[in-house]
Amino acid sequence: MSEIEYKVPTMAEMAANGETPEILFWVGCLGSFDDRYKKVTVAFVKILNAVGVKFAVLGTEESCTGDPARRAGNEFLFQMQAMTNIQVLDMYGVKKIITACPHCFNTLKNEYPELGGNYEVIHHSTFLQQLINEGRVRMEGGGTFKGRKITYHDPCYLGRGNGVYEAPREVLEALDADLVEMKRIRSKGLCCGAGGAQMFKEPEPGWKEVNVERTEEALNTGADTIAVACPFCMVMMTDGVKNKEREDSVKVLDLAELIAQRQGL
């Protein structure tokens, strides 16, 4: 495959050139700062480049949607964040947003409208599924997944929160991998333990960590890959696999990384 030159234009650069992107890629905090999840951001941007979608990011003008503050009970801080973000989004006339984070997705899609921010918001799993269905992402080049066992962990705010269960599974099936399901899936999927701002504090006393409980379930499927579609789940499941000392044999990967790998991007 020929070397592709990857572009990551910002909204500000586009606006300066008098251009309007088709979509805004909302990167999110973990996608911007977390060393592990930055790889997912890069993988997704490569896919966007490869299919030739006209997109832009906010770059340093992006800021937290406020989701963890709201779930922790700090409504003031959430609304401050939301209002400021809406001002930035509206300044650039953003219509359509894609994000890889189900928490950003839920907040932007369901909670910003009441504060005056109205956008079409799509999670990257749905977007990837659309690209595959339209034939814009072809499963060629790169490494094959044939015969490999992959299990998928449903993020709460994608699944139960917004009813997206099929898109991520269709993406995985397109890889030609063997999708092996855990016992608690879809609307009955078990949380990774990070939601509700739990990520930002020590857990309450109990007999087990939630992410360990979930990781054990994932490992019991015999899969060598745990596919995730949420940065918080990525952190929790990766920690869980380390806790079980299985990081050499089991990988935790995001849907975008799997597609990029398959395409050799």
């Binding site: 990551v8 905090c29 911007s32 770059g59 937290c64 503050a69 922790a72 700090n74």
Partner: peptide, 27 residues
């Protein structure tokens, strides 16, 4: 976490000016 969000626009203590560093290799 609240304080970080107010000062760095992220729940972690990162500098907001580093937010776009992930793209450095691509750009």
């Amino acid at each position: 976490m609240f304080q970080n969000m107010e000062t760095s626009q992220a729940p972690w203590k990162f500098s907001p000016s580093d937010r776009f560093n992930w793209a450095n290799n691509l750009r």
